[in-house]
Design a protein around this nucleic acid. Structure first.
Lengths: 222, 222
DNA sequence: AGAAAGTCTTGACGACTGTCAAGGGTTGCT
DNA sequence: AGCAACCCTTGACAGTCGTCAAGACTTTCT
């Protein structure tokens, strides 16, 4: 008969002890939440949002289904937390694409390598991201979180493209939103083909990226 | 005690009468199926695939929920039929974009107008299409139908782009898949912003299309 | 050691899902 | 008219869903 730490208002910082009702180890709570969210992420990536139940998420963890309502108020909060957790990872892979590049062509190859790794290793997470992004068009629950990830991805693309322009000593002719939309279209279609088991997807994506990037800079392409 | 026309193997052509078991009016059956599928389409476009039940679909029609299993074997067949029905409409709007254009710039404006009409009037159908396309990444049920629509959209984009190249007397430098991915990315992001209630979406999409199209042709852009 | 708080499991609830059988109207044919 | 096929409704089924209460086990504190 205790109060579950559903609403962990500030579990990781500040006051240090038990600001939320009945909260002994805020760090442990955060750890558990991450653990459960990771199990949820696995399940969602495998089955999709429409086919994932809380019991199934619990089966992918080492706990029973009841514990989910101990750490999360409801399903929406769990999935929202999942999306936040996903957000932290997905952008990080592209952090050093721009910083370590020696020239424009090298940057393209580094960018492409990162994209290919994402496609190879995280294709299931990718389709989950596409899934949740579409879900946010129907229910406003995740809308703000999805918008946050979208903005982060847009900024990531924008940083890389600006750096590419610097290295090529040419100016970028599209804005951040347009660049993100273009790369998102190309990459998501590649992921789609990859998941369908198509052949030559990586080479095709490489050609597309190598063709697209110079054309986003001022002057004649290629 | 009759056999429902679930498996209408060839209801609309050929033998003319009762090739499927107990099938008196194949045209009427097709009409009803279309009617129910349209109700399903409305419901799906409004609520999304994950939140749409057969009972809710029936409520958007003038029949009760049982009739759905009289005309469709199961939910999957109904939704598959929906997707087919959607396919027929969505591409048709762009049929005369290329044929009636007087010059490259005119073609761009005609293409853009069609895109804006789709976004304004069919934004809910658009998000449904994005929804079902992602669903097909998780369950193989609709996969072939979705692939068919994807191919139709790709060809539509390709026809317009080739015609644009002809009018501009320059050659296209991307293949059909790449062109479709680029336009799909730009347009889907525009629909996303439109559904979020953003301002200036139409102008932004216009700038994006006008900037993108010349850069898909050979030679210096803009 | 005993009390209290934290953590997790179990089992149940009401609601909802897809599916289907039974039956009542309705229509068309002979 | 009478029969049979067709069309549709109703109501139920087994299952699953999110949610939550009750309690058992564990840990921490005094």
């Amino acid at each position: 008969m205790t109060v579950a730490p559903h609403r962990t208002d500030a579990p990781q910082a500040a006051t240090g002890r038990a600001v939320a009702p009945a909260l002994a180890r805020p760090d442990k709570v955060a750890t558990r939440r991450d653990e459960l969210a990771r199990a949820a992420l696995r399940t969602l990536a495998e089955r999709g949002y429409a086919n994932t139940s809380l019991r199934e998420i619990a089966q992918h963890s080492e706990f029973s289904h009841g514990v989910l309502h101990y750490y999360f108020a409801d399903k929406t909060e769990l999935i929202t937390y999942c999306v936040k957790l996903y957000k932290q990872r997905c952008v990080r892979r592209y952090d050093d694409v721009g910083t370590g590049a020696t020239g424009p062509d090298d940057l393209i190859e580094r960018f492409l390598t990162a994209l290919l790794v994402s496609m190879r290793e995280d294709s299931h997470e990718q389709r989950l991201w596409y899934d949740l992004r579409v879900q946010s068009l129907f229910e406003p629950s995740f809308r703000s979180e999805v918008a946050g990830i979208d903005a982060a991805l847009r900024d990531m693309v924008w940083r890389i493209l600006v750096r590419y322009g610097e290295l090529a000593q040419r100016s970028v002719v599209v804005d951040a939103a347009t660049a993100y939309a273009l790369f998102d279209g190309v990459f998501s279609h590649a992921v789609q083909r990859h998941l369908a088991g198509a052949e030559g997807v990586e080479e095709q994506l490489g050609e597309q990226i190598r063709l697209l990037m110079p054309r986003l800079l001022d002057g004649a392409g290629s």
